[in-house]
Design a protein around this nucleic acid. Structure first.
Lengths: 164, 164
DNA sequence: CTTGCTGCAAAGTGTTTGCATACAT
DNA sequence: ATGTATGCAAACACTTTGCAGCAAG
């Protein structure tokens, strides 16, 4: 059985359960979003204005090293953090669909057993072949969302118009 | 038939084929690595010391927008660029295996038709469901390479030793 | 009490921008 | 000739570090 409470998990570790950490854990556990350090800082600040952005960065770094949080780069110039599915009651395993223009990210649930099976097989193969110890995988699809795609098409049309 | 020469492709476009661009194209076409802007700048500098790092960034941005180059973040704090397989005689379609500690990246070729089929099916499903126009996908496995993994294990042992 | 954790300010680092000049077409 | 592309320097934005004080265990 997986334990879904970061605070519990932390008490059992050698790290200290401080006020800033408690707040950051709550935010991560209760968010569906991909939060940046700044996002988390702002939310935390409302609860506990004494908190510093540095602490947010340091806590996230710690959580990442502990394998509790995943750090992503979706191309908008800042790292985004997300709690792992095994640590969250809310998030199941999912992949990402990312707009290269507005950087919107859609989580989509993986339902196909076929895919899970294939990923498992791939991991086994890679670990054997390259001697890696694999802990995570990322499957992401990049492109343009509906809105940005039509903007793009309009731009093309306009450019053609100017040339004529 | 795909055209494998960036310079040719560029002549047909509305952009100007300048000396810095020629050099950057050559570097990208002839490299097997995932180069950073700085890497490319250094190689280019040896051929043409008048080149500026800014130009490298701007050229890479342009190539990315044209869909000729892929920009990656492997977690070492700088973007890395790689020519697309359709633009290169050298690189076939591949995915990445990334060490979270030393940031080494292994390219592995995808041979399984099963996987290609699944990816195709997934893309079609996502485009329909979310109205996205998908242009790229990324499949990456993260973990620790053999060396870093044993370093990690040693650290754990030492820490246990200290506690006793 | 001990020492890990915190917040602040400052430094660091990759990347982008403003601008006058050079150059491809 | 004309307008795009360039290189430099400066600006930016996110992230990390040094340090003295605070507080969890």
């Amino acid at each position: 059985m997986t334990e879904f409470n970061l605070k519990e998990k932390f008490k059992r570790s050698d790290f200290r359960l401080t006020k800033p950490r408690k707040i950051i854990f709550d935010i991560l556990e209760n968010s569906e979003e991909h939060l940046s350090a700044e996002d988390i800082y702002r939310i935390a600040y409302n609860i506990y204005p004494a908190i510093g952005l540095t602490t947010v960065y340091r806590t996230l770094e710690l959580l990442e090293k502990m394998g509790i949080v995943l750090k992503h780069d979706f191309g908008d110039g800042r790292a985004r953090y997300e709690i792992r599915e095994t640590e969250s009651k809310r998030k199941g395993h999912h992949h990402h669909l990312i707009c290269k223009m507005c950087h919107k990210v859609i989580d989509y649930k993986v339902c196909m057993d076929e895919e899970k099976e294939l990923v498992k097989k791939t991991i086994e193969g890679l670990e054997k072949k390259y001697g890696f110890h694999i802990t995570d995988h990322v499957i992401e699809f990049y492109g343009y969302c509906k809105d940005c795609y039509s903007k793009l098409e309009n731009q093309k049309k306009q450019r053609r118009g100017q040339v004529i």
